[in-house]
């Protein structure tokens, strides 16, 4: 029971990341009908927003170390700490949450430029060509980041206050031994909040209503006299933001390197396919489902029966779903069918 509970928890944060990326991917796919292989690169750009902010905030100068009296010693002290003392220190500590604020405008801009500059030329081309050009774009973005930040993973720690673990077990009256890192708990809640916000945006605002109508029947909405292309550009930006935020928040869990996007890209496509192409709730549900399944598959009890299952479970599920339920879990009729 306790082991099951722990695995459930373990699956949630990864599931949250999958769900957010798949949500962005589905938004793009459902509205624009474009298969975006550069989506992993957006995730990576998001996480490198956090890295850049950390670089900027912790710019430092050499200062004489007063605590060493025998000889002249110098230490690096960030400017912020020199200027603002403890407040500056706290600012550096809170890099990752602060990065969320700068990521939103940056990713909105990136999404806008990407859609206007490249994707819009590919609406009428085949899916294969869309895959190819966005794959090329992903390589370009990835290599640019590598050229600037280097190839090694860059650690970006979470704020000090949430660096420990929560005694989750005690909250639910289970063993006190069940602990879970605070940050991953926060990640899960964050993912939940973002998903909620996106759904609320689509369901409750006029803009969202137009977008949903456009997803259902683009031409008719255009005939009514709504400039649907403009709305869809915004949606692309929104999808980029969602994915970028997922990337920012994931940096304390996994130090980002330039390649992180490619790893998530394959998984997120699998998630989208399992959830059903073009279905937003499907993408979210499948994201959490696969995250949890993966964490269960890595339990030693299960691994001893089926060795290696933890490595392939996600792909296996995807293959089975695609074959027995071609539309995915919650796929709509007529989306991407041959």
């Amino acid at each position: 029971m306790e082991a099951v509970f722990l695995q459930l928890l373990n699956g949630l944060d990864k599931g949250g990341a999958y769900a957010l990326i798949a949500l962005g991917l589905t938004l793009i796919f459902g509205t624009l009908g474009v298969v975006n292989f550069a989506h992993g690169a957006l995730f990576m750009l998001g996480s490198f927003c956090a890295v850049s902010l950390q670089k900027v905030l912790s710019m430092s100068m050499k200062v004489r170390d007063e605590s060493v009296t025998f000889f002249e010693a110098y230490k690096e002290v960030p400017y912020l700490e020199i200027w603002f003392g403890d407040a500056g220190k706290a600012l550096i500590d809170w890099t990752v949450p602060l990065a969320l604020l700068i990521t939103i405008p940056i990713m909105l801009g990136v999404g806008y430029v990407m859609e206007r500059g490249l994707i819009q030329r590919f609406y009428k081309r085949t899916h294969a060509e869309q895959i190819l050009v966005t794959f090329g774009l992903a390589i370009v973005l990835q290599e640019l980041v590598k050229a600037y930040f280097g190839a090694n993973p860059i650690p970006t720690p979470a704020p000090e206050i949430v660096s420990g673990s929560a005694h989750v077990g005690a909250w639910f009256g289970l063993s006190d031994a069940i602990v879970y890192p605070w940050w991953r708990l926060i990640y899960f809640l964050f993912a939940f909040a973002v998903v909620g916000a996106v759904f609320a945006f689509l369901q409750l605002t006029t803009f969202g209503m137009v977008v949903r109508a456009g997803m259902a029947d683009r031409e008719t909405v255009g005939l009514i006299g709504i400039d649907i292309d403009k709305k869809f550009t915004t949606v692309f930006g929104l999808a980029a933001v969602v994915t970028g935020l997922a990337g920012v928040m994931y940096t304390p869990v996994l130090p980002p390197d330039y390649h992180i996007g490619m790893e998530f890209l394959v998984l997120s496509f699998v998630v989208v396919v399992v959830g059903g192409m073009g279905s937003l709730p499907g993408a979210v549900a499948a994201g959490f489902l696969l995250g949890i399944l993966q964490s269960f598959a890595s339990m030693t009890e299960i691994k001893s029966i089926l060795p290696g299952i933890d490595q392939i479970i996600i792909y296996l599920v995807a293959v089975i779903i695609l074959l027995v339920r071609p539309r995915g879990l919650l796929g709509r009729e007529g989306v991407m069918e041959d």
Binding site: V273, M277, Y315, A318, V319, L322, P326, M336
Partner: peptide, 14 residues
């Protein structure tokens, strides 16, 4: 179509 691409991708990753 794209499902074929993803299926082959999934098998290769496995």
């Amino acid at each position: 179509g794209i499902y074929f691409s993803i299926l082959t991708l999934a098998f290769a990753q496995m």
